[in-house]
């Protein structure tokens, strides 16, 4: 008689019967892993190119690559792309506030500045 939506006992099947969202299959997961690996290899490679490290593009490019990895893991491995929108809100809201706080702090401590 396990109610499909109950929450309490470990042996109640919630996931199987809830608003079923199609998670990716293991084949897709492997592709995701491959992309993540390639980006990581790319990041480390860039780190060893002195001329690129000296250029203005170094920091932004690395930040973008790492943001891409971040997003891929969150969207595919954490299923945020497929799951309920509440989860998206619970994660992105705090994430935005956290990043805004981090950037503000860097401005306030003079690590970032406007117009230089």
């Amino acid at each position: 008689m396990a109610d499909q939506f109950t929450h309490t006992n470990a042996d109640i099947d919630v996931h199987a019967m809830g608003e079923m969202h199609e998670h990716p299959t293991w084949k897709q997961y492997k592709w995701v892993a491959l992309i993540l690996t390639l980006i990581t290899v790319g990041e480390v490679w860039l780190y060893y190119i002195p001329s690129f490290v000296a250029s203005a593009a170094f920091v932004p490019v690395l930040l973008i690559l790492s943001a891409a990895k971040f997003a891929i893991v969150v969207l595919f491995y954490m299923h945020l792309k497929y799951d309920h929108k509440i989860f998206r809100g619970l994660f992105t809201g705090p994430l935005i506030i956290a990043m805004a706080t981090l950037v503000s702090l860097l401005f306030l401590f003079g690590h970032l500045s406007i117009g230089s």
Binding site: D3, F5, V14, H15, H84, I86, F87, F91, A98
Partner: peptide
């Protein structure tokens, strides 16, 4: 028995996402 949850989602999954949101601030 327990009424269905409002969203049809499991309590624990909502809680863990709220926890992860909180951890964002911790690591930030």
């Amino acid at each position: 028995a327990h009424p269905p949850t409002s969203t049809g989602l499991d309590h624990r999954k909502i809680a863990i996402w709220a926890f992860i949101g909180s951890e964002c601030m911790l690591f930030a």
